[in-house]
Amino acid sequence: MRVLHAQLGHHFTLGELVQVRADLAFVTLPKEHLRSAVLHLRDICKFSHLVLMTAVDWLEEERFQLTYLLHNREKHWDLGLRVMIPRVASHMESIHDIWPTAATYQRELKEMFGIDFPGSPGVDESFILEGWKEIPPYRRDFDTRHYAEKTFTQREGRKTEDPAKTMKAKLYPDET
């Protein structure tokens, strides 16, 4: 992995390599380099499989983090590419022509986070939320509880208990 990171460093501006396990590492790179880095990894370094593509909302830093997890089938390596994009009017280059499956991930990200991927097939169609009118629900400033109370009628008499406390009181009544 270190060797790979050093090799990649010749071509792209890379951040620090975060090695989680022997076969799993993450690296941050600028938005403009992502496409070429992904192509390089797929065609030359044999990372042939897009495992997943997801996003994290860093609300305080006003940024979205996109994570592309690639897999090398020969060495069983997983490499995660992290890209930071601004949170306002966020958009990103589509990679659906590199892996067609990415189109589905991008469609979901568009719906759940509001990150646009221009040119990705079907990216503007609704995926799970049909007729959604609020801000995208996976953004952290979306208050799901408030929305649920506003939209759905609740049944009276619902009680919430902390499972850890309840089970402790039930199983070990002496210790409380």
Binding site: I128, L129, P137, F142, T144, R145, Y147, A148, E149, T151, F152, T153, Q154, R155, R158, T160
Partner: peptide, 8 residues
């Protein structure tokens, strides 16, 4: 109970 996408 607090999900935005399931009916109650």
């Amino acid at each position: 109970w607090d999900s935005y996408n399931t009916i109650k």
